[in-house]
């Protein structure tokens, strides 16, 4: 535990190495700043126009994270290869875990910092939508997806060894998963897209998820935007949850997706760790 706290890569990656980035990449970071600013403006506009639900806020944050999270990770290892610094790093006494944690931890810390930056917006959402279930499930979906993006980005930058292909693969992958696949799904199945009844107990919930995988419904059911949109049905505190939406509780809707994103993220981190052990002989 003590060793992990003293990981120089984590502190340098987080603070020292990035200190001058603003000066060196003004366009990139300018674009990031504009995106964050727009997200803020969008939400505040919604607040002014009238009572955005907590889910609307989470959706805005998710949109921002889809853009920002890849920026925290797409060059974590590729820069080491491109600048030919990886050999020097590999020869130090830092273990594979130290290196992984130094890079991944820094990216995760940035995720945490960004989410903190958005937290005032959550507080500004309509108070009558602050039901614990959608608040926590929404948080897990956004956090899980962000962690997944960072982990996948880290692995891609390790595997591809080039920043541009890693970044473009990450963004293109999101477009494919979040937009093109759902569009294809609805387009190809047309009016015959299955929409089974929501379960009435947890056993049925497990069966429902199984069917989701078998019938390719996962393309929509695991989509973070679709997940958040559906959570809207259980949001209002001063309204009865409609009967047809009760089944979402039996599906652990939002929690299942969030946990799954994190598990896949851990898989990517594991692959990167294995790669470090093999390729860097750590």
């Amino acid at each position: 535990m003590k060793r992990r706290a003293e990981n120089p890569l984590l502190s340098y990656q987080l603070l020292v190495f990035t200190r001058n980035r603003w000066k060196r990449q003004p366009l990139l970071y300018g674009a990031v700043a504009v995106s964050v600013g727009l997200a803020y403006l969008l939400l505040f506009q919604l607040v002014l126009l009238g009572e955005p639900s907590v889910i609307a806020v989470w959706t805005t944050i998710l949109t921002a994270m889809c853009i920002l999270a890849p920026l925290f990770a797409y060059n974590l290892f590729s820069l080491e290869y491109e600048k030919q610094t990886w050999e020097a790093l590999a020869l130090t006494r830092l273990s594979a875990w130290d290196i992984l944690w130094g890079k991944w931890g820094a990216a995760l810390a940035r995720i945490g910092f960004t989410l903190l930056l958005f937290s005032p917006m959550l507080a500004a959402s309509s108070p009558d939508t602050l039901r614990p279930y959608p608040l926590l499930a929404g948080a897990l979906v956004v956090l899980g997806w962000s962690v997944l993006l960072v982990s996948a980005g880290m692995w891609l930058s390790f595997k591809l060894k080039r920043t541009l292909p890693a970044a473009s693969t990450l963004y293109a992958g999101q477009v494919l998963l979040l937009m093109l696949l759902p569009l294809l799904y609805y387009n190809l199945l047309g009016g015959k897209a299955p929409s089974p009844q929501l379960p009435t107990n947890y056993i049925e919930g497990v069966w429902w998820w199984g069917q989701s995988l078998a019938q390719m419904r996962w393309i929509v059911d695991l989509n973070p935007f679709a997940t958040l949109a559906r959570l809207e049905e259980v949001t209002r505190i001063n309204q009865e949850v409609p009967d047809e939406a009760q089944g979402l509780f039996y599906l652990n809707w939002g929690f299942v997706q969030g946990v799954l994103y994190i598990l896949i993220a851990l898989l990517f981190a594991g692959l990167t760790y294995r790669g470090l052990k093999l390729a860097w002989r750590k």
Binding site: P8, Y12, F17, T18, R24, E82, T85, A88, R93
Partner: peptide
Amino acid sequence: YMPDFFGLYEGITVTEYLEFFAAAY
């Protein structure tokens, strides 16, 4: 080991660079 083509971390001072490697060792 000093490779024929080597890179250095940028955006940090000479002392910070050496401090990083001292800590890493």
